[in-house]
Amino acid sequence: MLFKLLIFPGFLFLLLCAFVFDWVDRRMLARFQGRVGPPWYQPVADFIKLPTKEDTLPQGVNATVAAALPMLALAAVLTASVYVPVAGVVSASFEGDLIVVLFLLSLPALTYFLAGWISVGVYSILGGHRSLLQYFSYEVPFLMAVAGPAVLSGSWSIASIVAYQAQTTWGAVMQPLGFVLAVVGLIGKLKRDPLDIPKAKSEVVSGSLTEFSGRKLALWRLSMNMQTVVGIFLLVNLFFGESRFFDVLPAFPVFGLKALSILLLLATASAIYARLRIDQLADLGWRILAPLALLQILANVGIGG
């Protein structure tokens, strides 16, 4: 159990994945743009560099809260990771763990908003506002899209959804629309290009994190990267569960391949789109994504019911 929590598929494995995914993502984006991209040790170097920098906070900011927020975000992501199986190996599982994971994965958005809220800088406040607005826009379609597989398989446990897919076929094949919506929602959740509205550099400098530096910023960065990993793993489980077509290959590399494919999708999306405006995102979320997600759920009820 302790091995599962700390080494695989727990903390250490996740840390490794966070660095690897960060590097692969940056490298892919660079290649899309005709650049060379950073060397493999760049994410590690970045992570080591940040804690050595001076840790400052503006006057009037509650230091305890400011220090607690990134830790809270990291803790939520790590707790969520406990319930997300990696290649069939899972630390803990029970009926309804999907709901817990979804709840825990929305906690970082809240801490991000609070980080902007407690800060005194105008950019942080604007970034905090934006992150909350963005949360309301992407979260509903994302939840509905992720609920699709659960409706289909008739269970709210990730392990059973994976098992259901093993009997039938990939969730992404049965509900392609739901998969696309889940990816869009994930982009919004991770605040990645093109939905990096709360931290848009040319508009609000660095959003909520403008005033953070040193160790706290390192923790923020780490929690973001781990969130990427956990989010991708969740999508792999829900939409690319173990399928009988790949039974010949060992589960672990296949899982890794699936996860990297989703990362490739995310990187492609950041490469080919410009950042949206917050009102455009709200439009997209409520007028297009949410009805489509509803459609998918209804279809799933039809198939699964």
Binding site: L29, R35, P194, D196, S202, R275
Partner: peptide, 16 residues
């Protein structure tokens, strides 16, 4: 312009 609207790819292409 592309950089300012978060369109890094066009930024890279245009500058190339």
């Amino acid at each position: 312009l592309a950089l300012n609207i978060g369109f890094d790819t066009i930024f890279m292409y245009a500058w190339h």
